[in-house]
Structures are given as C-alpha cells and as structure tokens.
Amino acid sequence: MPSSLVEFGLLCLTSLFTMINPISIAPVFLSLTAELPSEQRRDVARKATATAFVILVFFALTGSVIFKVFGISVHGLKIVGGVLFFIMGYEMVQARLSRTRFDKAEELDAMDAYSQDVALTPLAIPLICGPGAIATVIILMQEQDLTHQVTLFFSIAIVCVVTWVALLFASPIMNRLGESGNKVLMRVMGLIVMVIAVEYFFAGLGPILQKILGITPSL
C-alpha cells in the first residue's frame, strides 16, 4: 500500500506540473501585471494561485458529476479554453492588455479592480486551471479511496505553491526589462499563447467532429 501511494503521489505531481507548467506562466504574469506596483503584483499572484487551488479541488470533488448533469465533455472545455486563450493572446500581441485599462482610469480603485480581474481571468482560469489541469484532477480522482484522494489534494497544493513562487520571482525580472522590454516580451508571449489556443481548440474540436461524422479514430 505505501509504495502504491507513493507512485500515485508521483503520478499526481508529474501530471499536474506538466499540465500547469508554472515556469511558462511566469512570463505571461509578468506582462499582465506590468503596470501594477510590486505589492499588488504579489497580491495578484496570491489570489490567482489560491483561486486555482480552490477550483482544482472543486472539480476533483464534483467534476464528473457536473459533466454528467450538464452533458459537458472535456473536449468542449478545451474548445472554450482555446477561445479564451486566443483572445488573450491577440491582445498581448497588440501590447495593449494592461495599457487599455489604465488609460481609461488612473485611480487606485481602478487598479484594484484590474488586479482582481486579472487574478481570476486569465491567470487562475485558464492559465493555471486550464482544460488539461481540470481534466487531469477529474481523472485522477476517479475510483480512489480517501488516502489517495488526500494525496491528490496535497499534490494540488504543492503545485500551486510552486506556481506562486514562480510568479513572485517574475517581478524582479520585470524591473530589469523596462517598458520596451516588457512590450517585446508581451508580444512574444502573445504569439505563444495564440499557438497554445489553436492547439487546445482543435484538440477539442477533432474528437467532436469525428463523433458527428461517425469517423473511427485511427490507432
């Protein structure tokens, strides 16, 4: 039993690290929070990772039930995630994601509102809690005893803490880049995010079209 539990824990950690990839989220966080003071950037990182933890645990506990009740498939989730990613990536390529909001309002309450928004979307969803991460916790949760379920929750917490640390260390890098460097980084990351969006979209659309057309997937 201990060995199988250790193996399950390693499976949870490797799967979640692969799906979330904290290192790849840090540059996007860097671009999204370019105009926020350091204290608010830390607050955004904390809220984003805390929200991601709650969402992943929620879907681990209720995901399969919700999917059955509403007739939702993981493929549909991938399509929606792809659309959100593409919109976000397009705005990043235009280097206007943060600037647009702060040109309209320069007051502190506007900055607070922006930090709240960006912590939830797109950082918590769909960057940290993407379709892959949600699908992973739902699958790992299936037919597990209490000990294995607790191990999964502990693994989610570890990955979220590592993600939070990665986001915190992104802030000092931004100070060295400057405004021009940050805009270049935002455009490059925007292109990468748009490519990820296309991959997500067609990964979800392909199986749905195969089902509609009655095509059997080739092995």
Rank of each mutant, 00 (worst) to 15 (best):
T147Y: 11
V137S: 07
R176A: 15
K68C: 07
K104L: 15
V80F: 01
S155P: 12
A133W: 14
E143F: 08
L205Y: 02
F53D: 08
N175D: 15
P2Q: 14
D43I: 01
N21K: 00
S4G: 00
L77D: 00
S24I: 04
T51W: 13
I215G: 04
S38C: 08
T100P: 01
F153E: 12
A110H: 01
L167H: 07
G81Q: 05
L16P: 07
G190E: 15
L77Y: 02
I25W: 00
M19A: 10
V54A: 15
S3I: 10
S98H: 07
G89K: 06
V28D: 06
P172K: 14
Y200I: 06
A203W: 02
L84F: 09
N21F: 08
T33G: 10
A34N: 12
D112I: 02
G71K: 01
K47Y: 10
G190S: 07
I87P: 01
P122Q: 08
F102C: 09
Q210L: 01
S180R: 09
S15F: 05
P2G: 07
A166M: 06
S3E: 14
L97I: 15
L5F: 08
E199D: 11
P217G: 09
G9Y: 13
I158V: 08
L11W: 00
F67P: 03
A60R: 08
R46Y: 14
N175S: 13
D103L: 03
S115V: 07
L140H: 10
V83Y: 05
I173G: 06
M186Y: 10
G9E: 12
A45W: 09
E7H: 05
F58H: 07
N182A: 05
I192L: 15
V74W: 02
T14R: 02
V28M: 07
P22V: 06
I66P: 05
T51A: 12
T121S: 03
F53H: 10
I55T: 11
L56H: 13
V83F: 02
F67G: 03
T163S: 06
S38Y: 04
A105N: 08
A60V: 11
P126G: 05
V69T: 09
G63P: 01
L168S: 05
L191W: 14
